[in-house]
Amino acid sequence: MTELVDEQLMLSYGQGDVKAFTQLYLRHKNSLYRYFLRQCANPQVAEELYQEVWNKLIKARSQYQVSAKFTTWLYRIAHNELIDYYRRTGTQSKWLDADNQDLETAEFADHNSKSDTEKLDQAQQAKQLKECLAQLPREQKEAFLLKHEADFTLKEIAELVVETTENIKSRIRYAVAKLKHCIKYKLETSNER
């Protein structure tokens, strides 16, 4: 049985088909939830923002038109909610310079550290990754999440956050580099103990 695409489901929901919304919700709920969870210090705040995004989508269902991908529309609402939250709470200072090329100033082990011969458990690495992700600058973190949670291309991310594709490419590159260093540093730290 062919699954309906997101846009068709949203249009159906706009016409009153609640089952279509249920399908849409189940399809995207986890990614969107983690998108907020990774970027908010407080899980409760993440839940509030997450719920608000769906509320706005529900309110706008009758006016929905297929002018872009559904996920672009969904995450644009989410992105704006996050920005508004940062402005309300004054947490913009948590940003770091997204285009910072000076990796040595970061709180990670430098690239000259001795190579590690031992492998950590993959589950542990995954846990460390989450911890490292939390330390990333906000814009790099968001770009990374939009790529790995919502499967957006660089161009789509650039359009969503109103940036150039080159900037997004740089942000993701630096995010990945920092994550590598961070994981490696944590690995070395745990080995030394």
Binding site: Y25, L129, H148, V176
Partner: peptide, 28 residues
């Protein structure tokens, strides 16, 4: 890194939260 992240991304909204949102959608 991508594989590690996929392995790490296990969090989900609570069922209570799901029910609230689905109910709101139906009520609307």
């Amino acid at each position: 890194i991508a594989s590690l992240y996929k392995r790490a991304a296990t969090e989900q909204p609570s069922s209570q939260l799901d029910e609230q949102i689905l109910k709101r959608a139906a009520d609307d």
